[in-house]
Design a binder for these strands. Sequence first.
RNA 1: GGCGGCGUGGCCAAGCGGUCUAAGGCGAAGGUCUGCAAAACCUUUAUUCAUCGGUUCGAAUCCGAUCGCCGCCUCCA
Length: 526
Amino acid sequence: MLQIYNTLTKRKEEFIPKNPPNVTIYVCGPTVYDYFHIGNARSFIMGDIVRRYLEYKGFNVKYVMNITDVDDKIIRKSIEQEVPSGKVAEEFANAFLEDALKLKMKPADVFPRATEHIEDIVELISKIEEKGSAYNVDGNVFYDVSKFNGYGKLSGKKIEDLESGSRVEINVEKKNPLDFSLWKKAKEGEPFWESPWGKGRPGWHIECSAMSTKHLGETIDIHAGGNDLIFPHHENEIAQSEAATGHQFVKYWIHFGFLNIQNEKMSKSLGNFFTAREILKKYSAQTIRLLFSQTHYGGPLNFSEELIQSAQKGLEKINNLAERIEREMNSNSNDDAEIDFDYKKYYSEFESAMDDNFNSPQAAAAIFDFVRDFNRFIADNENLPLNNFKSAKEYLQKTAQDVLGILDFSELTISSNSFDEGLIDLLIELRNNSKEKKDYSTADNIRNELANLNIVLEDGKAGTTYKLPSSHIDDIEESVLKLIGSIRMEAKSKKDFTSADLIRDKLSELGYIIQDSKDGFLIKRN
RNA sequence: GGCGGCGUGGCCAAGCGGUCUAAGGCGAAGGUCUGCAAAACCUUUAUUCAUCGGUUCGAAUCCGAUCGCCGCCUCCA
């Protein structure tokens, strides 16, 4: 039974969607005036994990994430850069979509944009006006908070408290300082749309109400976003939508904790941020996702270089097993019956963790338990039947890959790439020959040189295996060829012509021609 | 001023009334394997959960107070 902590009721509740097995989810997406930062990424990724887990549970999820493409910040930027606001929005919306993919987020079923829903927005505002919950002051339309008696139910605030301590900007047009804009009258030079109230653009909150309703219906199952959206954004969405429809807007509200830097909220205004782009240059999506998974979504996460590195180390452990499994699947032909291993136990650990309000840290722990125990199982059972590896792969795929997104079998370094791995095999053969001759200095030299190229050799019972670096494969080919050539030179200088000839023959088998010259050698592709 | 969150080992972090002498990751120490490594595995690394009181047969978990940190109330994921 899945339980979700609902911000609205402030307790964990059993998740019962309105129309099972369908589930509707709306997550507040980015305002596209700049690249999004790693703190924003946390919300998007945790939303993605929520979605993926519901799919794992067999629900048919419709997932919507809005893109706010008209607002004050975008307009400000467009003025600064002297380009139309639509251009600014387009540029950063594209960047967002690219980065979201790089972060392994499953694309939303719909990424609605405010500017493409002006009609729906106008219609919704009119409806609110008809119900008497909005008023028009000279082309500015405001929501009348006093008409909605549930105002404050999400954020736990009382109207009086808000009014007294308020830092709300004083606006003489508003009846009440808490009233907020539904439609903003266009100022000189601002983008605008025609409306019954004149030229203008939508207020911030109304787009979510309009687009959510349009794509998911009047009552949606889950609405999620960062903690800072509880008030006023989500509170206002409820007020608008419920005033218009008379129905409950959202069944379950989920809010994500902040990502902090040195214990302070990461934010554009404080300037203490890293963009997701920057971080992705140094760390993989899987690393970032594991880091996020290892903290509960609701709490704060104090981001640091040290922390992300420890996640990276942890990830290697999972990847190492995945690679081992992949290697076995390629070479193992033991078709004996599967030996007993309690896969079920790890599925149920994973599920009961995720069922408890998406407790991803505990779910990750279940995966680590599995990795440890399965590694041990391999060690204890020589020549395991292939089916065991299949089952293990299935476990990792369903949990680590499909739900948390911290693993991708198709990206493992041992699998396909353009680099000719025969070259590595040749080096391994040369190294093994040296080892047999107890020429450890040559053997170690080969290993060290490869290590410098981020190619790791590991001697195992069944022979030597290797791991390739995940990127820049092309540059490496040249370095590897140079290494092979210099080994051959050394062999020649020692009059070890057997080795030298072996190298030349093997290279030609791989399609390379090595030519000796006075001062060295030249290797060409045949 | 109003509202809310947090404080668990060297670091990160689950646990939220008994199975907790507290999961998992990182780190550290020792060991197995290895020519040496790497990987993997094994062992060790919190009788204690900010502090002080209280409730309870029983508390890291509930209540109160104190100290410290953070957030929202203005754009913000």
